[in-house]
Design a binder for these strands. Structure first.
Lengths: 254, 254
DNA sequence: CGCCCGCTTGAGATAAATCAAACACGGTGG
DNA sequence: CCACCGTGTTTGATTTATCTCAAGCGGGCG
């Protein structure tokens, strides 16, 4: 057996980070979750049409753990509660494409007929939560407001993917990297995780490379140039944006 | 004023191709539409929970006509009935990225809070149909079966975009072109429009270039190589796949 | 201690872009 | 009828962005 999600070694987070399966019977960490209101979670936690809370399975996973493989269809909807994860796909020749990065409040919708061919992997130790897909459906159908929220989330994800595709097709290496960092910055900023244009940043250069379609070597050179030009510095588990306006200008070739 | 969708000059399609606005009062061309059963249309035409048909606005547009610009939010859902169209986005420096191509039965869902920054343009003379977004909502909410269909369509579109992004990030020029052609072939094949691995194909090399993030010059060279290698030939408004297995192998680097 | 991982830097190779010219085709206007 | 123009394709020569290969360095860890 491999990659049991309940296994969690080297976990140095506070004791409140419980692991294993927990249903809504138990006190839920969602009650104190800081991103709850900003995430699609609020709909899922809000419950079904009849006001009954949806079943939750809170779990943890260690850094590098793969939460699911691409080809199995999944019955569950995953929500990241704490830490970082990413969705990726491996090509036959070993190349990897990273579709996107997920932080607290991000939702990975369960898959249906088709498999998307993407896996989900923990970038840091994480806490996450699974909802049962079959329960989500009545939740959305039961309340028009939930439907609107779901629809908006769906469209937003689609737009983001479309913008990513456009960037990969048309932007230079430096612009693609700038776009990635800026995109992450803005999402982290919305969760008030950016202070003084600096923020924890667990991505290695290899993750940046695989998300932008570049080589780690080239990413290293480009980041060096960014630092030299006083645009952006990434060291030691955090990034610091030295010149936000300049960074934005690089991407707003639009 | 510019680009009124009802304007349709140089239209040499048969007289059955009417233009202008038509509501469900009038006899609908959908009744004889060959792709109706295979498209999300079937849900929209099927009607709302109460069995009432949704309002339809059938129109036509001439080649090159832009059906909508990126930043205006739209209240309507567009369905292509006949002909080809594509969604694209223009960058400030004039570059264009083509997100995808649409043929009969393809749906462009209305946009909500966010604008996706993409325009819709007719590649050939087209017939298309608009539904009113506000009417679509009760239609989906009213019938779980419609919800499932909508969900499936939504996920499928998402998966397709993700696959496109992965291809742009990791595949070579030849592989990207092969993927595009193959992708179109398979969709056309599902509509029984491919005979003897040959099919009408209105894209110019510039469209292929803008969809794959390449230069027209390089597309021309790559297509020449394809023809010389007996893989694929594109001439004169149609493509002919000379070696389907070989073409698939190029892409199934997977 | 030695090893693996991640980052950096250099030198050379290559895929694709750029610049440039020519051609084919259909339409249009004199 | 011809001259002309716009659009689309092809081909050649050169440039450039990015990759590949290779080596070295530092830190964490068994």
């Amino acid at each position: 057996m491999h990659g049991n999600a309940a296994v969690c070694e080297g976990d140095d987070r506070p004791a409140t980070a419980m692991h294993g399966l927990r249903t809504s019977e138990n006190p839920s960490p969602c009650e104190t979750c800081p991103v709850r209101a900003k995430s699609f979670c609020r709909v899922l936690i809000g419950g079904s049409a009849h006001g009954r809370a949806l079943t939750q399975h809170h779990e943890t996973a260690a850094r590098r753990e793969i939460l699911f493989e691409p080809d199995r269809l999944r019955e569950n909807v995953y929500v990241i509660c704490d830490g970082w994860a990413f969705r990726f796909r491996r090509f036959e020749d070993g190349r990897r494409y990273i579709l996107n990065f997920l932080t607290a409040g991000d939702v990975v919708y369960g898959e249906f007929s088709e498999s998307p061919g993407f896996s989900l992997q923990a970038l840091t130790d994480i806490r996450y939560c699974q909802f049962v897909r079959a329960e989500v459906k009545p939740c959305i159908l039961g309340q028009p407001r939930n439907y609107d929220a779901w629809m908006a989330a769906c469209i937003a994800e689609r737009n983001e993917l479309a913008a990513t595709a456009a960037a990969l097709a048309q932007l230079s290496a430096a612009e693609r990297i700038a776009r990635l960092i800026l995109h992450l910055r803005d999402r982290l900023d919305a969760h008030e995780m950016v202070h003084n244009e600096s923020c924890v940043f667990p991505l290695r250069q290899t993750h940046i490379a695989d998300a932008t379609g570049l080589t780690t070597v080239h990413v290293s050179r480009t980041l060096s140039a960014f630092r030299k030009d006083g645009v952006l510095a990434i060291d030691d588990g955090k990034f610091t944006i030295l010149n936000l306006a300049k960074l934005r200008r690089m991407v707003e070739r639009k």
